[in-house]
Amino acid sequence: MMDNLSLLVQVPVLNIQLLLDGIFVGSIFALAAYGLALVWGVMNVKNLAQGDFVIMGGYIAWWLSIDVNIWIGMPAFNFDFLWISALHISTTAIPFLEFMKPAIHPIFGLPVAVVVMFGFGWFIYITIISRVIGKDMFTSLLATFGLALVISQLLNLAFGPEVQVAESGFEVNSFFDGMVTVANIRFISLILAGLLAAMVITFMKFSRMGQAIRATAQDPRAAKVMGIDTERIYAFTFALNAAICGAAGALISMIWVIQPFFGIAHSIRSFVIVTAAGLGNLPGVIIAGLGLGVAELYSGFVFGAELQQFTVVGLLVAILVWRQIQQSRHRQPVQ
């Protein structure tokens, strides 16, 4: 551990690498966290499936980017239970239709992930979330936890537990005699994340729908009285959040790795960022997101990979404790 620390001091260029990488992943964390802050602020739903939405978006982009033999037909009686088994084809099956799906570059997979996740988010809102809104806050936490379990397990059944990367095939640039390497895709991803964030913010500020969402967030009953269909607003907000997660996931699949069970870590990252920044504090979310990315990479480098995960949860606990101390001076608990 001390070796790694002194290495950072002796070879300062390494800091640049860590900082850059931290910013690249941190920008994506911030994107997902913004989505969480949105549903939290607008409909008071704490979505523990946030990270699984991200991973799901990643799998969509990844799946589109590989050659897959699409196969529709009768599974010959070795019931693997459901159509998802179609991805692991059994040889005895009788195909009706079979063709090779062409590989699509993950950058073009991103809009597909956004659209699919938007639809998925709407579906989840109607089937589950609409029924937990307004119940006590633990309910939404538990329901979305169940959802997270289902999503991650289905992904595992469909794609297996291996770690996947959506290959973008772009060049890797080296600086400082190869001490710092940055893949072009990372720059592109950073720009895309910024662009997406700008789009969402513009949408929230200027579109009619965005204004309606903000009005509903402030006072749902008043919004309802003024003729806003709050039910539709909620559905849209949740779907929008899922779409944002889908985009974040597609980016993560390109610059990092995805795996069916990585969702919970992403959920916790989002919670860390939102808790640190507070709701409705956009600059805070961005700074906290980038900060978390950098902190995670530094701790991974200094303490080793085992403690990288701990950094995230440890930070969560630390932030909650710190906020509590801050609030205790005001004779009030953290609410």
């Binding site: 936490l141 916790i268 949860v313 440890g314 969560l316 509590q324 609030q327 608990p333 609410q335």
Partner: peptide
């Protein structure tokens, strides 16, 4: 115990994961 509602749930989860 200074945390309420969802913060308590998430905080305790965080402690255990850590």
């Amino acid at each position: 115990f200074g945390l309420r509602g969802p913060y308590f749930a998430i905080g305790t989860l965080g402690v255990t994961l850590s």
